[in-house]
């Protein structure tokens, strides 16, 4: 995994930021300037699209610095807690905070390439909703600073019915030799080729262990619906579009599309 340590990012982008001179970093902001900092253009479209993690973290560094409690007030030790999804063999290390799990822990570093702006797209904290309110603009969801639809991309329900499985994967996995690739070796979309994932690493690990696939596609299914993934064409894809896929786009949202530079890594 070259060029992937956060530290390296920091150095690269710190230099860039200082050279560019247009961005504010925490060190330049005094406490009494909080009001100005809070409304810095970097927090909003379009500048936020260019914001680097290093810039974000220079103020919001508690996102990575803060650790979970060693033990809860009632004495539950973090080291002895284990959620079911944490038994997956990609999941390792001590209990961590949500942000660290998405940015700096091994799973995050190995399989994902998430940035602050992957989820945080910036909005006016004074605006509860777009003006006028618009049901289509779900990125404003009444006080969530992150659109839950973004989370749904990985944390949705496993739509086993659509895959023609007899039951939920937990029940039918034995039938399919606990091997997703039994079917998906042929039915392959390129949907991992998005800029917040590391497609090759995922593919490679997926061949070794179906739990890797399941870990996202239903394993950590916080939500009760599946994400309506874009229907990327793949070689050998049937001509007929099934009913449930009819309205789906054929590409990821532009901001998730992979650039040439990233693709060559």
């Amino acid at each position: 995994m070259k060029f992937q340590t956060s530290l390296f990012h920091y150095i690269v982008f710190l230099s860039a930021a200082l050279a560019g001179g247009s961005w504010v970093l925490a060190g330049e902001i005094k406490a009494e300037q909080y009001e100005h900092a809070r409304w810095h253009p970097m927090h909003f479209e379009p500048a936020i699209d260019q914001a680097t993690d290093e810039q974000c973290l220079s103020c919001h560094r508690e996102i990575l610095d803060r650790k979970v409690l060693d033990q809860s007030p009632a004495g539950v030790k973090a080291s002895e807690a284990l959620a079911w999804y944490q038994t997956l063999n990609t999941y390792e290390g001590p209990q961590e905070t949500f942000h660290r799990r998405h940015l700096v822990t091994p799973l995050a570093k190995n399989l994902m390439d998430m940035k602050c702006t992957t989820c945080h797209q910036g909005n006016n904290p004074r605006e509860e909703a777009p003006i006028p309110p618009d049901v289509a603009m779900t990125d404003f969801t009444l006080r969530k600073m992150v659109d839950p639809e973004t989370c749904l991309m990985c944390h949705g329900r496993n739509p086993y019915e659509r895959m023609g499985l007899p039951g939920p994967w937990a029940e039918s996995r034995e039938t399919f030799q606990n091997n997703c690739l039994l079917c998906h070796a042929g039915i392959r979309t390129n949907r991992h080729r998005v800029n917040y994932l590391k497609a090759e690493a995922i593919e490679e690990l997926g061949t070794k262990d179906a739990d890797i696939c399941y870990g996202c596609h239903g394993g950590r299914q916080w939500y009760r619906i599946a994400y309506p993934y874009p229907r990327h064409a793949w070689q050998g894809m049937g001509e007929e579009v099934p009913e449930w896929a009819k309205d789906r786009p054929t590409e990821s949202q532009p901001r998730f599309r992979i650039t040439q530079e990233q693709a060559s890594k």
């Binding site: 007030p73 009632a74 004495g75 539950v76 030790k77 002895e80 807690a81 284990l82 959620a83 079911w84």
Partner: peptide
């Protein structure tokens, strides 16, 4: 049954 705790504690209201 999603959680495994060696120091098993029953969650309850107003535990404080």
């Amino acid at each position: 049954g999603l959680v495994e705790l060696k120091t098993a504690k029953q969650a309850r209201a107003f535990a404080y």
